[in-house]
Amino acid sequence: MEQEPILSVSNLHTQFHTKSGIVKAVDGVSFDIRPGETLGIVGESGSGKSITAMSIMRLIKDPGKIAKGDIMFKGESLLSKSNREMRAIRGDRISMVFQDPMTSLNPVFTVEKQMVETIRAHRNVSKKQAVDRAVELLDLVGIPSARSRLKSYPHEFSGGMRQRVMIALALSCDPEVLIADEPTTALDVTIQAQILELLQRLQKELGMAIIMITHDLGVVAEVCERVMVMYAGKPVEFAHVHELFDHPKHPYTWGLIGSIPKIVKEKVRLEPIQGLPPDLRALPKGCSFAPRCKHAMDQCLEVDPALLEESDNHHVRCLLYEEKEKVVTS
């Protein structure tokens, strides 16, 4: 039996109204995530993955706003919540780990203060109980001699340790959804592996759903079950992780996979995706990826394809497949 989704995003549109035009940062994103599941959102910088996360947290600042769509958390719309209700959810039921642990912790407060204030913002506990909980959390994320490290300031930790603190902070109140926005991007490769392992272990122990936002397909392959590939604010491919790696369908996904270095005997030239992501204020009329796509047809510059289910649970937004379907149906 399939569990009910804990979080459903449907047709989310987040836009920034700037002087030089409307930036459609997120343009029609939909996905569900179930308890204990890990969903990957992959894309280049500027593809709208972080804005999707910030939209779920309702932390989009002016001049940005959620223009359309809905975000349902345990059957209730987050968009209809008051600011106060939303604050009670943030950091408690849904929490977030950010990319750069160097800058994401407040440099002028001790780790203790930053953890205790989070716990006490959501739980009616004494200072001492909160401190004990903080020690427990630091233990959980593998920080040695946790109790004595509480009094330290963030600059007294290494990058990997700081990210552990950040994760402990996010786990303070046993969240049901953890959004990890590029949690390993700023770290050394060996530390990256440790942090990913830690997240997987914690997920198993605590049963939370994780949304893993990354530009790194390696991370996706390691931890995710399902993956959404985003390009210029739109999901372009959505599939199970094995399916995606074995049978990538969208030319952009081909490009992403093609640009990963592989260790093989003979030297193979990496194939980068030519060109740059489009200006989100002036998206091309047809498919956003068409100007960079090696397989683009004339039509691609005219028609913006829809995200269609190409095969079982494998969605793709590309005319290559719409064409095929037409041929099949006619």
């Binding site: 950091g91 408690d92 950010f98 407040n106 204030e117 913002a121």
Partner: peptide, 9 residues
């Protein structure tokens, strides 16, 4: 942003 995401007042 972290402080906001923690749900602080």
């Amino acid at each position: 942003r972290t402080a906001d995401a923690k749900g602080l007042a």
